[in-house]
């Protein structure tokens, strides 16, 4: 009991709460598609908003570490980061919260509650809306690549179905690389079969355009951003992740082309 009254321990526990809360905000930003410099900026703003004098951060692909110093006390805490995706509205909401916290006047409890509320209440488009939008995007990519109109329809269907199934698989915790391979096979097969049935003259292009939902555009630009911002380790990790996704996606297309007799195994 007496130990809990020790001012050093009390201060350490306060610092620990600040560090964990700042790490949680950083983790959400990272999982929502923010670059490392943005994550570090946000975590630093939140920690300094509570009077922390010095903040040190290290980002790995699957974890975040922070060291906070205040009043002669220092602690280091680490938090695991989950699958990196893109959620623009949640990312922006956490950034706005970081600005509010940095201006002072909020308690740790209030910030923790606000982070929880944002995670729960930030709206997301429904799975079907996203699926149709992605189908339209893939078909549009197809037009940019030069597919004909029959193939456009086939890609639209293939991209929509592919995105919906991808959402369900990821929601059920299936490995992201296996999902990439499976969805590439499914979408390319649907795009190819549809194009053949609709008598398209651009079957191969249609199969490729059907899997463009898998191309990790944001991680690939984030990889470059991270390297340019001085975080080559994280940037390299992202680049390797992008390459692996594309390898699995290509193998999926390969099998789809073999199934349709367009390529030998």
């Amino acid at each position: 009991m007496e130990q809990q009254q020790d001012p050093v321990i009390v201060r350490h526990r306060e610092l620990e709460r600040i560090a964990n809360m700042a790490l949680r905000a950083g983790r959400i930003m990272m999982e929502s598609g923010a670059s490392v410099s943005v994550v570090h900026g946000g975590v630093g703003m939140i920690a300094r908003g509570f009077g922390v004098e010095d903040v040190g951060l290290r980002s790995g692909y699957a974890s975040l570490e922070v060291t906070v110093t205040a009043g002669g006390n220092t602690i280091t805490r680490m938090m695991q980061v989950g699958r990196l995706g893109v959620n623009h509205r949640l990312d922006q909401a956490i950034r706005r919260l970081a600005v509010r916290v940095s201006q002072g006047g909020m308690s740790v409890d209030e910030v923790e509650a606000e982070i929880g509320r944002l995670v729960q209440e930030t709206p997301r488009h429904s799975a079907w809306v996203v699926a149709v939008a992605v189908g339209i995007a893939c078909a549009s990519f197809g037009r940019l690549l030069g597919v004909d109109w029959p193939a456009f329809v086939a890609i639209l269907v293939a991209g929509t179905v592919g995105q919906y199934v991808r959402h369900q698989l990821l929601h059920n915790g299936v490995n992201v690389f296996i999902v990439a391979g499976l969805i590439a096979f499914l979408s390319a097969t649907l795009g190819g079969v549809g194009s053949i049935l609709l008598k398209s003259g651009t079957v191969n292009l249609a199969m490729m355009a059907s899997i463009l939902l898998l191309v990790p555009g944001v991680p690939s630009t984030n990889a470059q951003t991270d390297i340019m911002d001085g975080y080559p380790t994280m940037g390299s990790a992202r680049a390797v992740w992008v390459l692996m996704i594309m390898v699995f996606a290509s193998v999926g297309v390969w099998f789809a082309e073999a199934l349709l007799g367009l390529r030998s195994l």
Partner: peptide
């Protein structure tokens, strides 16, 4: 725009 929906 389609990818904008995917990115929420």
């Amino acid at each position: 725009a389609g990818f904008g929906v995917l990115f929420n």
